[in-house]
């Protein structure tokens, strides 16, 4: 039995489809990522799986329980962390944790071992009101609160959005720890670079899953040669490359442009010569291996 099984789920808001025929399965103890930009349908999918929303069509089960029929069972065994910080800001750190333990009939003491690594970091501030915590600490508290009742499956909706880089890394380390203790985790994120931290990812766009695989495999399957190019005038470079007849795609990535050619045969000399003709200075160009974002862009183009 899969921990999460989704079959042909579809959902529309006023005739505008948010999810189109989504199917996938998540193994027990897997860290599964839903990767996609805003509006891809990640939150809608999470809300359906956590029984907050009813799908228009399709079925889904969590640990064998149907999300519509057995919603009561599911609410006992899952933990859901919404994208928005949704703990009581006027309650202290400890009061929040105690409340969320109590309503599941649990106590902090009996499940302390589950959250020890996370909670111990914010425990010195346990009398502080949740609203007065920093962004990273809020995330830790929220994670503690959804873990305190020992859920079998954890749903996290964009847990790292709006959190600084250091806290993001820390947060993912915590997720790995939780996963190692056997909890199934479904996490959504708009950050492509976080995909490699998951066991498997589903790349989502416009309510559809474009690809599901291990992040490594997705990268390996990237079929094209890829070059990073940089010159002194990046904006003109982008325009010029878009105007180049052999160009397939060109996207800005940080300080470089990522370039693929139509024939999948990049002649670096030819491109450099073309750019020199266009009076570009300080041309840097090298072949690179693709990252998830390149794969995402390629998939997006295919669809």
């Amino acid at each position: 039995m899969k921990s999460i099984q989704v079959n042909n789920i579809g959902k529309s808001y006023h005739q505008i489809p948010a999810l189109k025929d989504i199917s996938f399965g998540v193994e027990k103890g897997e860290l599964f990522g839903l990767i996609g930009p805003d509006g891809a349908g990640k939150t809608t999918l999470l809300r359906i799986l956590t029984t907050l929303l009813i799908a228009d069509k399709g079925t889904a089960t969590i640990e064998g329980s149907d999300v519509v029929k057995d919603y009561k069972t599911i609410r006992r065994i899952v933990g859901y962390m919404p994208g928005r910080f949704s703990l009581y800001q006027d309650l202290s750190v400890e009061e929040n944790l105690k409340f969320f333990a109590a309503i599941f009939g649990a106590t902090i003491e009996e499940n302390y071992h589950l959250i020890k690594n996370i909670y111990s970091q914010i425990e010195p501030f346990k009398t502080r009101k949740a609203g007065k915590l920093s962004g990273g600490m809020k995330q830790k508290l929220a994670l503690s609160c959804v873990m305190i009742h020992k859920p079998a499956v954890l749903f996290l909706d964009e847990p790292t959005t709006g959190v600084d880089a250091v806290s993001r890394t820390e947060f993912w380390e915590m997720l790995r720890d939780l996963k190692n203790s056997g909890i199934t985790i479904l996490v959504s994120t708009p950050y492509m670079d976080e995909a490699r931290l998951c066991d498997r990812v589903a790349l989502m766009q416009n309510g559809k899953i474009m690809n599901i695989d291990k992040p490594q495999r997705i990268i390996e399957n990237f079929s094209r040669r890829l070059c990073a190019i940089k010159t002194k005038n990046m904006y003109r470079l982008l325009k010029d490359l878009q105007g180049f007849q052999k160009t397939n795609t060109v996207y800005p990535f940080g300080e470089f442009l990522h370039y693929t050619a139509k024939e999948n045969d990049i002649d670096m000399k030819e491109i450099i010569k073309y750019l020199e003709q266009k009076d570009h200075e300080g041309i840097e160009m090298r072949e690179i291996t693709a990252n998830i974002e390149d794969c995402f862009m390629e998939l997006m183009n295919k669809n």
């Binding site: 609410r75 962390m81 919404p82």
Partner: peptide, 13 residues
């Protein structure tokens, strides 16, 4: 308004 209802709804309450 503050979104806690989302969290509360995914509990046995």
């Amino acid at each position: 308004e503050i979104g806690t209802i989302e969290q509360i709804n995914v509990t046995p309450i």
